[in-house]
Design a protein around this nucleic acid. Structure first.
Length: 654
RNA sequence: GCCCGAGUAGCUCAACGGCCAGAGCACCGCUCUUGUAAAGCGGGGGUUGUGGGUUCGAUUCCCACCUCGGGCUCCA
């Protein structure tokens, strides 16, 4: 019997009998490889373990904990889900079921328009466990089109995949090769694979929810029934994932906004609209004041514009042509048709276009906290994250072409500096380039503007991802995402070049040469929507705002009722010094009042009693720290000022 | 907009188609006078999201609408 030789990841050669499979290699390696290997990677191609290896191949094995391993587990779990559903629901057919982040889904079409309910999930999960316990093999086969048509004759969505009408990289034909994976005599799925050796490797999963999903993502097509699941390499990983979901739920800004009395969404007000209560409003005011300060110092000029405008304005800007669906319906008034503004830029263009502009005025940076109204479809609303009326920290910068790169460079500094002040320092930059199907302006100006955006990023030495074709039709852009305290990513800031609006509004400036030139316009949102950013902050901090933002910075408590006057005097002193302080009278025991302050996530709870009155001190109980008795009031105020002035993310603990 | 699910006191949640819809927290009053995460007693509080229907009887079953949640689609 002849041998083959394969190269392992450590560079060593291994002699194996001809015909040895990935599983055979794993067996010969023994130990963890034999027990846990899921698939083999052979010369860069992922293959099932039962595929034969060939002489000279570089082979590595994929294990459950790795990214590739998890993907295989999740993809295989999707097949188990499909088998369970097809078993339990006669007449059901299935479409596609890929792995996704943290899990998998599968889309089904049940006979007679049946739908899944949450109760069905338990039943399906039970059937899946049986399938897992049976350790069914995943048996790969290459079939020709006629065989595939026969196998899937009752599954029209699979036929569409075979026809290439539905693009699905996990199941569609790979070139001319059609492959299937069979688990039982009756269950076979169209799939590229690879898969785990048998279903027994898939024990750590959970079905999460049912949802509707359009076939091929097209809202004009059939609505399928989607089941989402999560799957992991170990019971521990699954448990940790579920724990993370719980933690995220605890930070949900809608829940915290309610608990902390920050704001509400009264149903009488209408969907997607919020009212800000005093506690939320003061945080918002501090945020906005800070934003205004920074803009004032950053060379911006403040403007104000109304919420309504004549339809003519949005015809000129093009919004009515392109985005009428997202605008509130027109209001007919005696002198014309009016719309709520969906963006501030047309009005800022009116300001730029007023009078004769000189090159000496550029870059002209207009800034407004401008409230806009967009008609978001009811199903898309989501707390503060997706809302129908919101305020942009909106700037439009008019710049001569030759100063574009410098301006963008400065903008990146400005944006990062402000975001850092709010506690974000992990940024991801995305550069979106021209969509060749949909753009205005000349190729030259696109190329130039894209170059300027790149150059600005490069000057800062920033890493960025290029999203080809992702730009809006009017110009390329840089989007800035931040990571929050639990690793979630939020897109906040955007810097967009615009060649369209200056044309539409026929904007110009007189250059040093005495000629009229067209400015380039930059749209720049920093926090983006104030409402959404507030929601992100709530989730980032889990409701425990840094002291500089906290609605109540200091809560003062007297030990007994006869200390209340002293407590009030201390509150007055703190307020006079510019801090937000309050007190709670001693109607309840001290412990109960402390607890209340903790639940409200107040950064500092101060206690004053007999000892303190005698010594001019307070007891300091900082959020997240230990009690510190006998601190002089002066020392505490100094500590508080340090916390606030430096925008520390947590109370200062001695 | 589409699919699934949910709406009961300010909040969190109970109540088989059947007595006057309950509990904890919160709120108000009285008592307690307190040294670092829940004192005691009492009280007020509801057109069970809205409107229809089925029924002797509806929080409960059915329909429509509204709002919310999870997805899909969309997101200038």
């Amino acid at each position: 019997m002849s041998n083959i030789s394969v190269v392992l990841p450590d560079g060593s050669q291994r002699e194996l009998p001809t015909g040895t499979t990935g599983a055979g290699l794993a067996e010969s390696l023994g130990g963890r490889a034999a027990r846990e290997a899921l698939i083999a990677v052979v010369d860069g191609n992922q293959l099932d373990l039962d595929r034969e290896l060939f002489d000279g191949a570089s082979v590595s094995l994929v294990f459950p904990g790795s990214d590739d391993g998890l993907e295989v587990i999740r993809h295989s779990a999707a097949h188990v889900l499909a088998q369970a559903v097809l078993d339990l629901y006669p007449g059901a057919t299935f479409s596609i079921g890929p792995p996704i982040e943290d899990g998998f889904y599968y889309d089904f079409d049940l006979s007679g328009g049946q739908t899944f309910s949450d109760d069905d999930l338990g039943r399906i999960e039970q059937r899946m466990r049986e399938i897992v316990n049976q350790k069914q093999p995943f048996i790969r086969a290459e079939v020709d089109r006629a065989e595939a048509d026969e196998l899937f004759k009752n599954h029209p969505y699979k036929i569409e995949v075979l026809d290439g009408e539905a693009d699905d990289p996990t199941s569609g034909p790979d070139g001319s090769v059609i492959t299937t994976y069979r688990n039982t005599d009756t269950f076979v799925d169209l799939c590229r694979g690879p898969h785990v050796p048998h279903t027994g490797r898939l024990g750590h999963f959970k079905l999460m929810r049912v949802a509707g999903a359009y076939w091929r993502g097209d809202e004009n097509r059939q609505m399928l029934q989607r089941i989402y699941g999560t799957a992991w390499a170990s019971k521990k990983d699954l448990k940790e994932h579920l724990h993370r979901l719980d933690e995220a739920a605890k930070r949900d800004h809608r829940k915290l906004a309610n608990e902390l009395d920050l704001l509400s969404f009264p149903s009488k007000l209408g969907g997607g609209l919020a009212v800000w209560h005093p506690k939320g409003a003061i945080v918002r005011k501090v945020m906005e004041d800070y934003s205004r300060d920074r803009h004032e110092n950053g060379g911006y000029e403040f403007v104000y514009t109304p919420h309504l405008a004549n339809a003519n304005l949005f015809e000129t800007s093009g919004h009515l042509d392109f985005y009428a669906d997202g605008m509130y319906p027109p209001m007919e008034m005696d002198n014309g048709t009016y719309y709520m503004k969906p963006m501030n830029c047309p009005m800022h263009c009116l300001i730029f276009g007023h009078g004769q502009r000189s090159y000496k005025e550029l870059p002209l940076r207009l800034f407004e906290l401008g409230t806009v109204y967009r008609y978001e479809r009811s199903g898309t609303l989501h707390g503060l994250m997706r809302i129908r009326g919101f305020t942009q920290d909106d700037s439009h910068i008019y710049v001569a072409e030759e100063h574009l790169a410098d301006e963008i460079t400065g903008l990146l500094d400005f944006v990062m500096s402000v975001l850092r002040a709010f506690g974000f320092d992990d940024f991801v930059f995305n550069l979106s380039t021209k969509d060749p199907e949909k753009y205005v302006g000349t190729d030259d100006v696109w190329e130039y503007a894209t170059h300027c955006l790149r150059e600005a990023l490069d000057r800062h030495g920033l890493e960025y991802e290029v999203k080809e074709g992702d730009a809006a039709f009017y110009g390329p852009k840089i989007d800035i995402d931040v990571k929050d305290a639990i690793g979630r990513s939020w897109q906040l800031s955007t810097i967009q070049a615009d060649f369209q609006l200056p044309e539409r509004f026929d904007l110009g400036f007189i250059g040093a040469d005495g000629e009229r030139h067209r400015p380039i316009m930059l749209h720049r949102a920093l926090l983006g929507s104030i409402e959404r950013f507030f929601g992100v902050l709530v989730e980032h901090y889990g409701g425990a705002f840094p002291t500089w933002l906290s609605p109540v910075q200091v809560r003062v408590l007297g030990v007994r009722a006869d200390h209340d006057a002293v407590a009030q005097a201390l509150v007055d002193r703190l307020k006079a010094a510019g801090f937000r302080a309050d007190m709670v009278e001693a109607d309840d025991p001290l412990g109960a009042r402390i607890r209340k302050g903790k639940l409200e996530k107040v950064p500092y709870v101060l206690v004053v009693g007999d000892d303190d009155i005698e010594n001019g001190t307070v007891g300091v109980n900082p959020r997240g720290g230990d009690v510190d008795r006998g601190v002089t009031v002066d020392d505490f105020i100094e500590r508080l000022a340090d916390d606030v002035d430096n925008k520390r993310t947590a109370p200062v603990i001695d």
